[in-house]
Design a protein around this nucleic acid. Sequence first.
DNA 1: CGAGTCCTTGAATGTAATCAAAGGTCGTGG
DNA 2: CCACGACCTTTGATTACATTCAAGGACTCG
Lengths: 239, 239
Amino acid sequence: MPHLAFPNTNCEEFRCSTHCSVRPLAICGELSPEEHQEFERLAQHVRYAPKEPLFSEDEVSDSVFSLIEGIARLYKLLPDGRRQIIGFALPGDFLGMAPTPRYSFSADAIGTVVTCRFFKGPFNRFIENKPHMLMRMNEFATRELGQAQDQMLLLGRRSAEEKVAAFLVSWRDRLARVEGVTKTVTLPMGRQDIADFLGLTIETVSRTFTKLEREKLIVIVPDGVRVLDPKRFDALAAA
Amino acid sequence: MPHLAFPNTNCEEFRCSTHCSVRPLAICGELSPEEHQEFERLAQHVRYAPKEPLFSEDEVSDSVFSLIEGIARLYKLLPDGRRQIIGFALPGDFLGMAPTPRYSFSADAIGTVVTCRFFKGPFNRFIENKPHMLMRMNEFATRELGQAQDQMLLLGRRSAEEKVAAFLVSWRDRLARVEGVTKTVTLPMGRQDIADFLGLTIETVSRTFTKLEREKLIVIVPDGVRVLDPKRFDALAAA
DNA sequence: CGAGTCCTTGAATGTAATCAAAGGTCGTGG
DNA sequence: CCACGACCTTTGATTACATTCAAGGACTCG
């Protein structure tokens, strides 16, 4: 038996049908039972340790991924090492589409991550005669594009304080889709990641958190923040 | 006979088949002759005067557009009037897809613009059983997303000088797709548009152009610039 | 308990923004 | 044809916000 990248690939506990609580949110969420069974046979379930890369910019892109568990950071680097995080991927997100034959950005696990991995060849053959699947991919791409455009507005035209507030609000709302609504917003990524997402330095992010706390808008707790005044907070984020 | 938004809608000189030099680049570029004929019957050809809006953010989005002639600016506004241009659309570009039932940004003509306009209902019925068309839309969305991600890197992590240089290089390359390669890069948009695209002020853009000219990298000419030292210039843009 | 990592705070610096004004260009009408 | 006005761009002086440089504090894990 050949060695597999992840030995549990065929283990029952990793089959989407039994395991995948995020399936309704995922790319495969609207497949019929039969289609889904076929789709599953194309999937490799892969687990990544914290900080482990899923793929890297400029690598030949042979696979696409559906994120099942955990959170990934997606980023681009300049030659001198400056980094821009272009997004955080949550369970249900679909990764790896690129306008060229190589990945246009890098992705790595923040905590532990589990993905469904699909090789592009079989994946493309599967979708090419399934209009509803193609339409779902269009929805996903359009939603991501909308997020990217919001982020351009944030990066180009908002102050540090507005950036941090808008980030916390949109992160809280995205988490709500997978975890449900909570008072406390958990932040699995570090300050440096937030800084690289918002186009700031780590010091400015830290100072801004402190400032928002002094202004009684949030309380900083381990691994996150609690929002004290959602009304005033949303207003600052929308500003 | 009912009044039409554009009286020449059915005029021969505006039919895509005879008029559309950019068709190979456009969303409809790979339709068979029969399909294209059907597609054309759904299209309204519309002309816009300089500065005229194609559509506005938050408006109910009933149409999508294929840009045939001219250049459009796409932008988002903050409540206080700060503006971020999220892109410039060229002939062949496809506009108006949104993650919600309303447009997520505004678009208006820079010079004179001509579009193919499609109402969403008929458009969606046309594409829903045409996998190759859906795949083409995916390509378009993926390409746009890639551009948006490049722009995030630019907005978040590049200096004013790098922003301007990178903008000129990518604009030159995009123009080459529709106009062919030239020494002079024409800039149909004004300095304020460039500033709002790069997340700068008009003064900083102006100063940076002047600086690049002093450094003998470009010459500023009416409605554009000439690149003097493409090698050094590309290096600065990539930096 | 100590090493390492991450986060916070302080002081000085620098890049781009803001405020202000002059210079160009274009189109219109005298 | 020139003069005027509107609009856009350039340049200069000052300010402000975020960065950089530096150091101390907190938490985790072996």
